[in-house]
């Protein structure tokens, strides 16, 4: 299992989406998120996109005001995770049209549905944007 958790955090450090693939209780989560966010937000553009924290490696990437952070174990290919973050953002872009923090906040469940189509139990399920989005679009159609 490669991916341990995925976080989306705005530049004020507020969590906008959190998906964990291993069990952690609320207090641990809050503490972990706080520590990671402090570490990542303190880094500048030139520094590399990887931060080691506890037993995790955090791969993060910033898009406008939103940080995407993925916690992985030591075996994972860091560069591939960066590429994965980009794929996630592109997928959200395709659905929301230039995704922003508010889209994710107000459509939290949709963001989760997309993630669900992309990652299961910490492994990548699908890398085609069309395949990821088709069940979600179907749902939209059915409910409208």
């Amino acid at each position: 299992m490669g991916i341990r958790f995925i976080l989306m955090v705005n530049k004020q450090g507020q969590t906008r989406l959190a998906q964990y693939y291993e069990y952690m209780n609320l207090e641990e989560r809050r503490a972990l998120e706080g520590e990671i966010v402090r570490k990542c937000l303190a880094r500048n553009e030139q520094q590399c996109s990887f931060v080691e924290h506890r037993t995790y490696k955090i791969v993060y990437r910033r898009y406008a005001s939103l940080f995407f952070m993925v916690g992985v174990d030591n075996e994972e290919n860091e560069l591939a995770i960066l590429e994965f973050i980009h794929l996630l953002v592109e997928t959200m872009d395709r659905h929301f049209g230039n995704v922003c923090e508010l889209d994710i906040m107000f459509h939290l469940e949709k963001a989760h549905f997309m993630l669900e189509e992309m990652v299961m139990n910490g492994c990548i399920v699908e890398t085609s944007k069309a395949n990821i989005l088709s069940p979600i679009q179907l749902m939209d159609k059915a409910s409208s």
Partner: peptide, 13 residues
């Protein structure tokens, strides 16, 4: 439930 998910994300029980 959608609300609870949001509240959960903020770190409340």
């Amino acid at each position: 439930l959608a609300k609870l998910m949001f509240i959960h994300m903020l770190g409340y029980p």
